[in-house]
Design a protein around this nucleic acid. Structure first.
Lengths: 239, 239
DNA sequence: CCCCAACGTTAATGAGCGTTAACTCGTGCC
DNA sequence: GGCACGAGTTAACGCTCATTAACGTTGGGG
């Protein structure tokens, strides 16, 4: 095995990546269970069981996609968050990176939170561990950027806000056509315009979360309706 | 009097509704294609094909659920939005209603945007029509509440912002356990605390959208001409 | 030259599943 | 009493689909 087998380079990207791309597109469009292996094969020019030369099975394809994207998110997130500057800059970089991801890899973002339950237990745990790490990155940045959220009692608020902002940003592939569309405008907004808007929305949401936490410090967050609740201060962190 | 056939009242709610509830739960938990009819039957105490006495088929159950929730959202939305007061009050009422929905009917909210593709063409069109009507309600309220978004050029921004806020609010069933859990605290936050927080986040996002639209008025919100210019720095949001 | 390893092909297998058929059982009404 | 009917039951059909088997082709290295 001293020499590389061969370098196809014909289809620009190796078979394995080609399969990844088409599988992601199809899974995002019709769901993991709604797509047959024959269809994936046809999409890459081979037919049916030929895929088994490249992946152990249909499950393995989904696992590869979900673990891959989770790793990319976490790695890139770490890179951006730790790129000098303070917490506000880190948060801004995280938002920018996630928005870019959501706009450029819609299929994967869609899969990322839609198809987790179709993974075998072990892979699911792996993905969840990566997701948790990514979330921690955000929670730390947000709490660093907004002092009101740094209060111990505000930790659940920060966490929930991050979840919500994920939903906000990830909604894009959902509202737009599921297809990447490669380049041009979407829904009447230029891609960069949409990116800027999502960026603003995310900041606005976090800012509001900080305001709510400050206002309701010690009595829960009561914005409009003033029903007070006991401040749930106990937080359990597992693993 | 006409003597109704019978009044079960034993299981508290009629078979048909029982099936609706369990089917929603199962579909939300494992996806429409991931649940078999036998399983739905078992969940309501009858077995397998007995369901066909109540629904025309599995597809019909999903259609019933999705059309039902879409109608409820639109109807309740109209009620709340047109309940006197100006646009700001209407927007506030819409947000409150949707948050309530997302917290109390998580299964349905999940299905609402996850399983649309498993509907037959006709039903899908019906649901989309209802969803579009609901969205218009929001777009009108937002543009009425924030003058900057009322500008004709800002219409796509308003629309995108509404989509994003839907994603934000709907993220709740997603981040929390899929199970309604009926009552108690979730993720360290009391239910009402979470409601208040989501309310604040939604307002914060809309406010930021208005700010972005005002800042980028006339230029279509094109953020930067540079390729990787990530210094947003455009809108300083304040609640 | 020959072999083997990579890469595909088609046919077969076997399980799962939605739906239908045929039949049963209780209950209100004439 | 008998009849119709709502509500279930189990067995069987038919189809889809992931996976495996068995076989074919190409090309480079010994």
């Amino acid at each position: 095995m001293g020499s590389m087998p061969n370098v196809p380079a014909a289809s620009a990207l190796p078979r394995r990546d080609q399969i990844r791309k088409e599988a992601a597109r199809l899974f995002a469009a019709r769901g993991f269970l709604g797509v047959g292996v024959d269809e994936i094969g046809k999409a890459v020019g081979i037919s049916g069981p030929g895929l088994y030369r490249h992946f152990a099975g249909k499950d393995a394809m989904l696992a590869d996609l979900l673990i891959g994207i989770s790793e990319r998110l976490l790695e890139e997130g770490r890179r951006r968050a730790g790129n000098g500057g303070g917490a506000p800059e880190a948060l801004d970089a995280l938002i920018g990176g996630h928005v870019e991801f959501a706009l450029d890899d819609r299929d994967l973002i869609t899969l990322h939170d839609r198809e987790l339950l179709n993974l075998k237990e072990e892979d699911r745990r792996t993905v969840r561990r990566l997701q948790r790490g990514y979330l921690e990155l955000w929670v730390d940045a947000v709490r660093g950027a907004y002092p009101a959220l740094a209060e111990p009692a505000a930790e659940p608020v920060a966490r929930a806000a991050v979840h919500a902002v994920f939903g906000l940003i990830n909604s894009t592939p959902h509202s737009l056509g599921p297809n990447p569309a490669q380049d041009d405008r979407v829904a009447g907004l230029q891609r960069d315009g949409m990116a800027a808007l999502l960026h603003s929305l995310a900041h606005g949401a976090f800012s509001a979360a900080a305001g709510a936490a400050a206002a309701g410090a010690g009595s829960g967050a009561g914005a409009a309706s003033g029903t007070e609740a006991e401040a749930g201060a106990d937080t359990e962190v597992d693993t």
